[in-house]
């Protein structure tokens, strides 16, 4: 089951060489993406990505660091935890999107050292969590930070995250509900997301659906299947929900398919 070879002529050696050079910014940017996409984890790629994560040459018109964003994303996919300190440092980058990619990467790597630095980004609560003037984003990548804390099982962050249930952005509210379900197991938070699936805006329904998938909250399966959204997305959300549920049940090592599995597969079959 090979990954799609998007560009068969492109090789790992070429990706490494392109990432190490500094002449051609777009070739370097693509190489960082490619290494993450094909999970090419080895000493040379990781070293080159760590250099790229501190790059000063590739700047966007608004002052951002496009290469750093891709480097952070790729590092989150390679599964090597030695890069955690570098990603924690990237949480302080002036570029919002580098901070967001770093938070997502830290979630992907699942290392507890990220918990305290991520929690520090939530200090100031709702008062600090405002839109940046002239930008389409908040002061911090709150969704990514909160989702990472939930995935990292950071129960010490429950109190901080609860505040964000009242944030003005629905997407931040959903991220908080998702994380709080993961941290407390309280069905109330799963039900909040189910209610959100009935909302009027497609973008928000999609967002709530993916958050519900991440919780593994079983009553969410029916709700996802019935929501007004595209089947492609529902199938992904149901797969995620099944995987998250499965992870929780892992201790019960039984070979037979569980009733929950059967129900979710049946729903997925109906959406093909």
């Amino acid at each position: 089951m090979s990954e799609p070879n998007l560009n068969p002529a492109y090789t790992l050696d070429q990706a490494i060489a392109n990432l190490q050079q500094t002449e051609d910014a777009s070739a370097r940017y693509y190489a960082a993406w490619w290494i993450g996409r094909f999970r090419a984890a080895q000493p040379e790629t990781i070293a080159a990505l760590l250099v790229a994560l501190e790059d000063e040459t590739d700047r966007s018109p608004d002052g951002g660091y496009p290469l750093r964003r891709n480097a952070a994303k790729a590092l989150g996919k390679l599964g090597d935890r030695q890069v955690v300190p570098a990603l924690i440092k990237a949480l302080d980058c002036e570029d919002y999107y580098v901070r967001e990619s770093a938070a997502q990467a830290l979630e992907g790597l699942g290392d507890n050292r990220a918990i305290a630095p991520l929690m520090a980004k939530l200090t100031g609560g709702l008062e600090k969590a405002q839109l940046v003037e002239g930008k389409p984003h908040l002061t911090q990548p709150y969704e990514a930070i909160i989702e990472a804390l939930g995935a990292l099982r950071a129960i010490e962050s429950i109190g901080l995250i609860e505040l964000f249930l009242d944030h003005f952005s629905q997407k931040v509210q959903y991220a908080a509900a998702r994380a709080l379900f993961q941290l407390t197991g309280d069905n109330h938070y799963g039900d909040l997301l189910i209610t959100a699936l009935g909302g009027a805006e497609l973008q928000l329904r999609r967002s709530a659906m993916m958050d519900l998938g991440a919780t593994g909250y079983l009553p969410g399966a029916q709700a996802i299947a019935k929501a007004f959204a595209e089947n492609s997305l529902k199938l992904i959300a149901l797969r995620d929900l099944w995987a998250a549920h499965q992870q929780k049940q892992e201790c019960s090592e039984s070979k037979a398919l569980s009733p929950a599995s059967r129900e979710i597969l049946k729903l997925m079959d109906s959406l093909l």
């Binding site: 089951m1 797969r239 995987a243 499965q246 398919l257 599995s261 059967r262 597969l265 997925m268």
Partner: peptide, 17 residues
């Protein structure tokens, strides 16, 4: 044996059954 995606593996088990 070679299916990398867990949910697809689960669907194969159901089909076999």
């Amino acid at each position: 044996k070679k299916e990398p995606e867990a949910i697809v593996g689960e669907r194969i088990l159901l089909a076999l059954e």
